[in-house]
């Protein structure tokens, strides 16, 4: 045990490990806040879909050899998020079909673009690390960390300021609309925020695993807690805890960061499910 702690202390002397921790915790926090809304709106797959879009955009940016690929990734992802979430409950193509369409479409185009045009010798390696985020979190620069902190502050303040509106729009869009809440505006806001989170989170877990960060903490919290506020708080706590634990384990054991965090999230979900079952059993 002492060996492990010594090893950790050593690792945490390196700035890149500390950066990874800060960014990991912030991303986990942001994604879990919005995750509850997305799960409840039956939009769990939106994270997946948008991250594939981000992957496609990233591939295009690489091929165009843009110096700052965020300039392309962020607007493209935002646009798709708005298209997907804008129509909300009253959509013509229902959410799941639209997401599946955009998601696999972007993935295919992205991979093709990389294969056809890329000058890199290690295409498989590049694609793999974009999809699973294997190392990029350990190569963050200080600027990227500050960018991440800034965006997280924006996301969290939007969430706190519009908490009650987000609740109303999630619970009953038509009622909110009929009683004068600008539901479409808030749908748009949710779309923009989720797109921001996805683009942020690509660095942490890679584009294939982002959905896990979005849905697992929310689902875990929903097993046990029964009011919206307690679910949100619990989901944030679980998410941050799992991200920290995942990063520590992966540093010590040398496992890939993204998938380790997701595995910890799965374990947490299993725990919460059993607690929920037990509590339900006692009450009934």
């Amino acid at each position: 045990m002492i060996e492990i702690i010594d090893k950790l202390a050593l690792y945490f002397q390196y700035p890149f490990v500390r950066y990874a921790m800060v960014v990991g915790v912030l991303i986990a926090l942001c994604s879990s806040l919005l995750g509850v809304t997305l799960v409840l709106k039956h939009f769990s797959f939106i994270g997946d879909g948008l991250s594939h879009v981000a992957f496609g955009a990233m591939a295009a940016a690489t091929v165009l050899s843009l110096t700052n690929d965020m300039l392309l990734i962020l607007p493209v992802t935002l646009l798709c998020a708005i298209l997907l979430l804008r129509s909300g409950q009253n959509a013509k193509i229902k959410g799941d079909a639209a997401i599946a369409m955009i998601s696999v479409g972007a993935l295919a185009i992205g991979y093709m673009v990389v294969n056809v045009f890329s000058a890199s010798a290690n295409i498989t390696g590049d694609v793999c690390s974009t999809l699973f985020g294997s190392t990029s979190i350990l190569t963050l620069t200080q600027t990227e960390v500050w960018l991440c902190i800034g965006l997280s502050v924006v996301v969290i303040s939007i969430f706190l300021l519009f908490y009650h509106k987000i609740f109303a729009v999630t619970f009953d869009e038509n009622f909110a609309l009929a009683t004068g809440t600008k539901a479409n505006f808030y749908n748009l806001l949710i779309a923009v925020v989720i797109a921001l989170i996805i683009v942020l989170a690509m660095n942490l877990v890679g584009s294939l695993l982002i959905s896990a960060l979005v849905i697992f903490p929310a689902l875990s919290a929903m097993r046990v807690f029964k009011s919206f506020r307690s679910v949100i708080i619990c989901s944030a706590v679980v998410s941050v805890f799992c991200a920290m634990l995942g990063i520590i384990i992966s540093t010590v054991a040398g496992t890939p960061v993204g998938s380790t965090i997701v595995v910890v999230d799965i374990v947490a979900f299993a725990l919460f499910s059993s607690v929920g079952l037990l509590a339900g059993g006692i009450k009934a």
Partner: peptide, 28 residues
Amino acid sequence: IGYLPQQTNVQKDFPASVEEIVLSGCLN
């Protein structure tokens, strides 16, 4: 106009307390 809609699928599995839901009616 206070509106009592038919229940949607979203609401059947929604974790929210009675207080939170009733309060959301005052949002306007």
